[in-house]
Simulated assay, not measured.
Amino acid sequence: MINYIIKRLLALIPILIGVAIIVFLIVHLIPGDPAQTMLGERATDAALERLREQMGLNDPLPVQFWRYVKDLLRGDFGRSIMSNNPVSTELAQRFPATLELSFFAMLFAVLVGVPAGIFASIKQNSWFDNMSMMIALIGVSMPIFWLGLMFIWLFAVELGWFPPSSRIGVGLEFVPITNLYVIDSIIQQNFAAFKNVLHHLVLPAVALGTIPMAIIARMTRSSMLEVLKKDYIRTAFAKGLKKKMVIFKHALKNAMVPIITVVGLQFGVLLGGAVMTETIFSWPGLGKYLVDAIYARDFPIVQGGILFFAGVFVIVNLIVDLSYALVDPRIQYE
C-alpha cells in the first residue's frame, strides 16, 4: 500500500504542473491590468509603468512563468497584489470556512441520500421509489444560485427562521482558534456560539448539499438494486435471515464501493465548487475570495487558489481509493 500511495503522490506532480500552466496562461491572457487596479483610475502613466516593472509584469510570459515555477518549488505561492500578504497565509485563513461548509453539506447529502436510496431500492417501483427519484432528479437539475436565493427569500426574509448570510452572529463573544467555528466553539465550551454557528450553517449547507444528495441517492439505489439481485442475497433470504440483516449487513456492505466513490468525488467538487454558494450567502470562504481576486486581477491569489483546489481534489480521491479496502477486503493495493 505504501508503494501505491507514493505512486499516486508522484502522479500529482504532472497534474499540478499542467494545472499551473493552464491557469497561468488563462489568468495572464484575460483583459485587465493589476497595476491599474492597485493604483486606481487616476494613476499616472509613469506610476503605472513603474509598478508594472516592480511586479515583473513587463517581462515576457515565459520569463514570468519560469519565475512563478521557481517560487512554487520553494513553496512560495507569491504575495497578494491587493493585500501584499503571502498567498499561503490568505488561503490558510479562508480554507477552514470552505472546509466546514463543505463538510456539513456532504453530511446532509449522505444522511439524506443514502437512506433514501436504500429504501427506494427495497421498495422498487413503489410510490416512495418514484417520489424519491423524482425529487432526486429535481435536485440534480436545480441551479444552485436559484436555490440559494429561494432559501434566503423564504426561510430568512419571509419566515425569519435562519440568518441570510455570514458564519456567526454579531455581538457574540467568540475567539476563533482553528477558524473551524464549530470545533472552536466546542473547544471553548461556548455553547451559545456553537448553536449560533450551526444556525448560520443550515441554509448554505442544505443549498450546497442538495445536488450531491440527489446524486448519492440515485447511485445508492442503483448499486443496491444490482446487489439485491445476486445469488448470495437470495441464499441469505432462503436461510431465513432477517430482512434488516440481509439489507444492511450483506447487501449494503457490498454496494458501498460505488457509493464511496460518488461521496468522495462530490466532496472534492464541493471543496472546489462552493464559489456560487459562498457568494450568495456572503460566506467568507476560499471560493468567494477567489471570485473577489478575479475581479481585482490578483493573479497570485487566483493561481495559488486553483492549484490548492487541484491538490486537495487529488488527495481526496486518493483517500477514497484507500477506503475501498475497508469495505471490501478483496481489494489489494500493490
Rank of each mutant, 00 (worst) to 15 (best):
R8Q: 08
L9Y: 02
L10S: 06
A11L: 14
I15Q: 07
I21P: 00
I21H: 00
I21M: 02
I26R: 00
T37W: 11
L39N: 12
A46R: 14
Q54S: 14
P62G: 03
P62R: 01
P62N: 02
K70P: 01
D71K: 15
R74V: 01
G78H: 01
S80L: 02
S83H: 11
T89S: 14
A92W: 14
F95G: 06
P96F: 05
S102W: 06
S102D: 03
A105F: 05
F108E: 09
V112T: 12
F119M: 06
F119H: 04
K123E: 12
S126W: 10
G139R: 08
S141W: 13
M142A: 11
M150E: 06
F151S: 03
F151C: 05
A156D: 02
A156K: 03
V157Q: 14
V157Y: 13
W161L: 08
I168F: 11
L172W: 13
F174H: 14
P176V: 12
L180C: 08
S185G: 13
A192W: 10
A193F: 09
K195C: 04
N196V: 02
N196M: 00
H200G: 05
L201V: 04
L203K: 00
P204T: 05
V206D: 02
A207K: 02
A207R: 04
G209W: 06
T210W: 06
I215C: 08
I216M: 08
I216Y: 10
T220Y: 05
S223I: 14
M224P: 07
K229M: 14
Y232K: 12
I233M: 08
L241A: 10
K244W: 13
A251N: 07
A255C: 13
A255N: 11
G264S: 04
L265H: 08
L265T: 10
G268F: 02
L270Q: 03
G272T: 00
T277V: 04
T279D: 06
G287D: 00
K288L: 14
K288S: 15
Y295C: 02
G304P: 05
G305E: 01
L307T: 00
V312W: 01
I315E: 09
V316S: 05
Y324G: 05
R330T: 02
